[in-house]
Design a protein around this nucleic acid. Structure first.
Lengths: 132, 132
DNA sequence: CACTTATTTAGAACCATTATAAACTAGAAG
DNA sequence: CTTCTAGTTTATAATGGTTCTAAATAAGTG
């Protein structure tokens, strides 16, 4: 199975639940954004057995820690995740509350001139808010 | 009083509570970032009477709507606000969980090349995550 | 002063997320 | 295959930031 090695290689046991969540998250043409609630719905629609909400949270956090998912920095009552873990940015449509991908090439190079002593830049994320 | 007109001009009644919160938020040398909890503490330290937590929430939201405060898009269990409402960006120190201002000149121009039909860009915010 | 509308307030309600602790399972070793 | 151990799943409770509610209070207007 294609996700067993992926999980093993990162020190996560390939359990039935994790493999099923992998199918939902990564076995798709396009990457996508989701909240935990939305993911739970997708899982329900795709599989027969039930996966506990706690497991969904655990798994998403484990995957995020391993770099298979990214949290999207946005103020919302729910946390948004992204299956696109490449460097890229987002539009946020304030009216429709929808996220839209912005490729790096859509934004151009960002040059952070300020340095903080003893700290390295881990990521640079741009959020472009849209209104009508 | 210097904040009475500010409030009246934006259609907010200059109540005792709002004026006191104005003192804490705006009567400072430097702008700053805060959570509601941190603001509540600051208020307690600065004034004699008590301001209800609900009023702090109400006031912060009212001020944000009027453009006197900005929400900082960051994933945290608490919402961060900024008394600096000029266009600027942030470092976020993941270890210390601290926000640091990044002036526009520290980042350089950001040119969003992609357009979304019928939508205007309201703001462009950069979050630079820092690690050790 | 009288009246209307906005604001404040304490407390309850809400709800996403995290903690708990018991049951279960994967992988390893014998 | 069996046993053992650490990792994982699970239902449920707990947590905690934020919002709601409805009654009391205060501001502005005539």
């Amino acid at each position: 199975m294609k996700y067993i090695d992926k999980l093993r290689n990162s020190g996560l046991r390939p359990t039935k639940q994790r493999l099923q969540i992998c199918e939902v998250l990564f076995n798709t043409e396009k990457t996508f954004h989701f909240t935990i609630n939305e993911l739970e719905q997708k899982i329900k629609n795709k599989i027969d057995n039930k996966i506990s909400l706690a497991t969904v949270y655990n798994t998403v956090h484990a995957f995020e820690k391993k770099g298979y998912l990214k949290q999207i920095p946005i103020n919302s009552n729910q946390t948004y995740f992204d299956t696109n873990v490449t460097d890229h940015h987002h539009f946020y449509d304030l009216k429709d509350q929808k996220l839209i991908d912005l490729e790096n090439s859509d934004v151009g190079p960002i040059n952070i001139k300020k340095k903080i002593n003893g700290k390295r830049i881990k990521s640079v994320e741009v959020l472009v808010k849209l209104e009508d």
